Amino acid sequence: MKRLLQAALLAAVNTAVLAAPSPGTRLSFVACPIIRDTRSVPCWLSEYEGQLYYLTIQSDVSAPVQPPMLGHQVLVEGVVSDAAPICGGVVLSEVNLSVMPERDANCNTLLPADERYVIDFNPRPPGPSSGRLAFGGQARAGGVEPDRPRRQAAPPSGEQMIDIHFDFDRGVSFRHPSDLSGVLARARQVDARQARVIGHRGAHRLSNGTLLRESENIAQRRADEIASLLAGAGLTIPIQKEVRDTVDEADGFEDWRSRRVTVVLTP
């Protein structure tokens, strides 16, 4: 019986790409992630309303889209693309993934490698990175572009506002050190004399109309964590913490931006 169920699931996943929404359709849903093995690097998928979607590949902390994890549902936000399917799934552009905090034992599907699906844009070979991050260049749909010379930007001046974004109902994670480094660098550039760390509580509107609200204490937790980490990293100016617990009505358009801490640097 178990083998029959596994075969049925595999067949359903392999035939899910049938009638995707038209390109440009914005989607937002919560579902279990699915990981599919390939000869080069695993890819992550998820199914919504009978349609299979490609999310991202397995990579490291430098990836512009952090992969989900088994054992948790994932909040998916993205726009249906007209790109060719990847790993058997419709490609989403402008994709943002947020691992939901609650454990879900049903989210444990791992599919074997299928010769039809090949990942030919893996940024680095499999195995340990040896200190090399996968995404040294600029990410693009389905791969990564090499670094290109950039025009020297004018140095920042005046008051600076920097947003640091978070997964749904979560605080600081392993992907935030680069954000904190950016705040420290900006503070030095403008010779900041004080900082305000403003924690926000977010909300999210799913495609089916469901409204998700973060927990009431999440804004305080984020402000406390960011302020503490900045001070511990060497930001010696006075840091004032503020909390915005009110939740605006989400509309399903880039709602991930509401899950944030805003750091205001004043020279």
Rank of each mutant, 00 (worst) to 15 (best):
M1C: 06
K2I: 14
R3G: 02
Q6I: 08
A8V: 10
A11R: 13
A12H: 09
V13E: 02
N14P: 03
T15W: 01
L18F: 05
A19Y: 13
A20D: 07
P21S: 00
P23T: 00
L27P: 12
A31S: 12
C32F: 00
P33L: 07
T38K: 06
C43G: 13
C43K: 01
W44S: 07
W44K: 08
L45N: 01
L45V: 01
L45F: 00
S46F: 01
Y48Q: 07
Y48H: 15
Y48M: 01
G50A: 10
L52W: 03
T56C: 15
V61D: 12
V61W: 08
A63C: 04
A63K: 03
P64Q: 00
V65W: 10
Q66E: 12
P67T: 05
P68D: 02
M69P: 00
L70K: 09
G71F: 05
H72Q: 08
Q73V: 02
V79T: 15
I86C: 06
C87D: 05
C87G: 08
E102Y: 09
E102K: 12
D104K: 13
N106A: 13
N108V: 15
L111D: 01
P112M: 00
P112S: 02
E115H: 13
E115R: 12
R116M: 04
I119A: 07
D120V: 06
N122K: 13
R124E: 09
P126I: 02
S129I: 04
S130V: 13
S130N: 15
L133Q: 06
F135N: 06
G136A: 03
A139W: 15
V144D: 04
R148Y: 06
R148A: 14
R148K: 11
R151K: 14
A154W: 03
P156S: 04
Q160D: 06
M161Q: 14
D163P: 15
I164D: 00
D167Y: 10
F168T: 10
G171A: 09
G171H: 08
V172L: 15
F174I: 13
F174E: 11
H176K: 04
D179R: 08
L184H: 06
L184N: 05
A187W: 01
R188N: 13
R188E: 12
R188D: 14
Q189N: 06
Q189F: 01
Q189Y: 01
D191M: 11
Q194Y: 10
A195H: 11
R196T: 05
I198C: 00
G199Y: 12
G199R: 09
H200K: 11
H200L: 11
G202T: 09
G202I: 07
A203I: 02
H204E: 02
R205M: 07
L206F: 03
L211P: 01
R213F: 04
I218G: 05
R221Q: 12
R222S: 07
D224N: 14
E225S: 15
I226Y: 06
I226H: 08
A227N: 01
A227K: 01
A227Q: 00
A231V: 05
T236A: 05
T236M: 01
I239Y: 06
K241G: 00
K241C: 03
V243A: 09
V243Y: 09
T246E: 12
V247T: 08
D248F: 09
E249K: 10
A250I: 02
F253W: 07
E254C: 00
W256A: 11
S258F: 04
V261S: 00
T262D: 02
V263M: 04
V263S: 03
L265P: 07
P267L: 01
